[in-house]
Design a protein around this nucleic acid. Structure first.
Length: 472
RNA sequence: GCCCCCAUCGUCUAGUGGCCGAGGACGCCGCCCUUUCAAGGCGGUAACGGGGAUUCGAACUCCCCUGGGGGCACCA
């Protein structure tokens, strides 16, 4: 049987990197095994669902290159299926109707907390007679459907990354599967759909381990025979070992995209959180990862998201993709920063200079500021302060101006300004930051001689002379 | 509070009883290269949480402790 896996996001926000990693591992598994990768939108909670998030998540998956094989499923369109499953559970005695009010449940849990009991349902509605139910309904009380969990014994399933996972049924109380407004809950919809879709492998976050017991129980009660293979992936945590949160910085895939992280790099990095190939490779493209990916090499322990390593990988990828491709990706960023009418040839030249040193697309774009700056050129105060402390700034600028006035206009000839600096008894490397500031407005940036060439003699001279003037 | 999962350098990891006086990568430090910053090259720093048990022999098996994380909703 060919594997069928699904990624099932809840459209209550942008795609989180943790979810993206889950999507990625499902996709990798499908592609590695020649199986089918499906997307199922879990939008049974209409109050948290927004259509724009459905589209945003799809866009993000496409950006990452995680393509799905069949039309996405929408749980909101399958409510009748879930409700008839609930009816079947009711009929078979696996579920029962309750008429507790929200206030009563809150009070019940307050009492349980006072008695040092875990939150949960005490089963008060379990064995109501038909007459009692009718009476409670007639009072206008809300009706929910609860799944009846076993009173004793253990629930056990085999997890591909953790082995046997087992829990005492007595610690899991009866849980709601149909809300009082008549809509189905996650547990029910999940069990019904995994069955209906013929899902063979459920690959998802470790935070869902405890719910697996419930979903599996519903599945069995519904007559599902063979259970899918489960693989619970380790959580991704932030540096303080807490769950990744907004406060920490980037958490949505789109945040990384806006920071100038390449899809290749993010995909590569995410694949390395909780998984490693059987050799020392780290920089891998999609195909390499697909070829090497197996569930038995997934790690069980939580991983901390390391932004530094991501940026390193991103730099690797910036250097790895073809220049033309890189230019294409920088173009929209440059247009947004400098205007649509900019000289695209100039952008391409700058990208070429920046490719071997950039860590993000954004940083690379920002380094091009000096090429599109308005005249007069402005050197920020703090940059200037940091740079005027070099030896003999006046002499350096005078010598460089003289050189630039007369030298041939190619990088090598421009570069002989080093000799002029040496003649002053200075090491070029020690005074360069002054020239970078004068020309690029920052103490370090794209290679100076190339920068001068791109800028042209007139603009270069104007900036150098302005800097000389500022020295007094 | 109860339940569940996890535990190798700061971080991501390799490691499935002897090949480990623990390997790779990021980071950090140093050196080289050098027009800045990077990139690149070379080298260095740094870990099997603690205690028992099994075994001729444990990072690898079992138990306890400790620590970390997750779950316990009419969210998913």
């Amino acid at each position: 049987m060919t594997p069928r896996v699904r990624f099932s996001p809840a459209p209550s926000g942008e795609l989180h990197v943790g979810s993206a990693r889950t999507a990625l591992f499902n996709w990798l598994y499908a592609r590695h095994t020649g199986g089918t990768f499906l997307v199922r939108i879990e939008d049974t909670d209409s109050s948290r669902t927004r259509e724009e998030w459905v589209d945003a998540i799809s866009d993000t998956l496409r950006w990452l290159g995680l393509d799905w094989d069949e039309a996405p499923w929408r749980q909101s369109g399958r409510v009748p299926e879930y409700l008839s499953a609930a009816d079947a559970l009711l009929a078979s005695g696996h579920a029962y109707e309750c008429y507790d009010t929200a206030e009563e449940l809150t009070a019940m849990n307050a009492e349980r907390a006072a008695d040092k009991l875990p939150p949960g349902y005490d089963g008060r509605g379990r064995d109501l007679s038909a007459e009692e139910r009718a009476r409670l309904a007639a009072e206008g009380r809300p009706r929910t459907v609860r799944f009846r969990t076993p009173d004793d014994g253990r629930s056990t399933f085999t997890d591909e990354v953790r082995g046997e996972v087992s829990v005492e049924w007595s610690t899991i109380s009866d849980f709601v599967i149909v809300r009082s407004d008549g809509s189905p809950l996650f547990f029910l919809a999940n069990a019904v759909d995994d069955l209906a879709m013929g899902i063979t492998h459920v690959i998802r976050g470790e935070d869902l381990i405890d719910t697996t017991h419930r979903v599996l129980a519903i599945r069995r009660a519904l007559g599902g025979t063979e259970a899918p293979v489960y693989a619970h992936l380790p959580l991704i945590l932030q540096a303080d070992r807490a769950k990744l949160s907004k406060r920490h910085g980037s958490v949505a895939v789109e945040d990384f995209r806006e920071r100038g992280i390449l899809a290749e790099a993010l995909l590569n990095y995410l694949s390395l959180l909780g998984w490693a190939p059987d050799d020392d490779r780290e920089v891998m493209d999609r195909d390499e990862i697909v070829a090497a990916f197996t569930l038995d090499r997934v790690t069980p322990s939580a991983a901390i998201f390391d932004d530094k390593k991501l940026e390193w990988l991103n730099g690797e990828w910036i250097r790895r993709i073809p220049l033309d491709d890189l230019v294409e990706r920088i173009r929209p960023l440059a247009a947004a920063r400098f205007g649509d009418g900019i000289d695209t040839h100039l952008v391409a030249c700058a990208v070429k200079l920046g490719q071997e040193r950039a860590t993000t697309l954004v940083a690379l774009t920002n380094q091009m500021d000096f090429l599109f700056a308005e005249s007069p050129f402005v050197i920020p105060e703090d940059v200037w302060e940091a740079v005027v402390s070099v030896d003999q700034p006046e002499a350096v600028l005078d010598a460089v101006v003289a050189h630039v006035e007369t030298c041939a206009w190619d990088v090598d000839s421009i570069g002989t300004m080093r000799d002029a600096i040496k003649e002053l008894g200075l090491k070029p490397g020690k005074v360069m930051k002054l020239l970078y500031a004068a020309i690029e407005g920052r103490a370090a940036g794209l290679p100076l001689f190339d920068a001068l060439e791109l800028l042209g003699r007139d603009v270069s001279l104007a900036r150098l002379r302005a800097a000389r003037l500022r020295l007094g």
